[in-house]
């Protein structure tokens, strides 16, 4: 540490204890094990309708046309692992399904973020997972089912092993 804390008090006493209200208001993150997922649920077909209304303008009618980030894999997911990085979509590049809920919930739609209900986010997640051939059209997404979804790209991710020195990695 950059600080010599020997002469410090146990506590400085600045700040205040957080109430559970303080925490609940902000604690929106979703972990891979599903911790943080709210009550609610959504289906592929509900998601399809919401997508058309609130997302297609920016991500394209089928999620491949843009103008912004493509969300749907064009090729079949199996072939994607050959050249990861070519097309970085949910189907071939996203290692965790919970990330989808978390990100849509916190950041989308880009221009009106934080405006979706849990049911809407579950529905959009179901729709996008289906569009990427990861779940079938009857899938229902909720706090129990979403963490169970296996993502094709999961196995591709490896931790960083660079550590300086002469080797280039």
């Amino acid at each position: 540490s950059l600080k010599d804390t020997a002469s410090w008090p146990q506590s400085f006493g600045f700040g205040r204890l957080a109430s559970s209200h303080d925490i609940d208001t902000l604690d929106i993150d979703i972990r891979p094990d599903g911790k943080g997922l709210p009550y609610g649920s959504g289906t592929v077909s509900q998601g399809k309708a919401i997508y058309a209304a609130k997302c297609a303008l920016c991500h394209g009618k089928t999620g491949t046309e843009g103008p912004f980030n493509p969300l749907v894999t064009k090729t079949d997911t199996a072939s994607s692992s050959k050249e990861p990085g070519k097309e970085k979509t949910i189907g071939n590049y996203w290692p965790y399904a919970t990330t989808l809920y978390d990100y849509i919930n916190r950041a989308m739609p880009f221009n009106t973020p934080g405006s979706l209900t849990p049911d809407e986010v579950y529905s959009l997640t179901a729709f996008l997972l289906h569009a990427n051939n990861i779940v079938d059209s009857s899938a229902v997404m909720n706090a129990q089912t979403l963490p169970q979804v296996n993502m094709p790209a999961r196995a591709l991710f490896v931790p960083d092993d660079r550590s300086g020195g002469t080797e280039i990695k």
Binding site: P109, T112, G114
Partner: peptide, 18 residues
Amino acid sequence: VMQRAVTEKETATSDPTK
């Protein structure tokens, strides 16, 4: 595109995350 997407009911909130 952003401008087009910004609808009239754009949230007039003081919450910067929205």
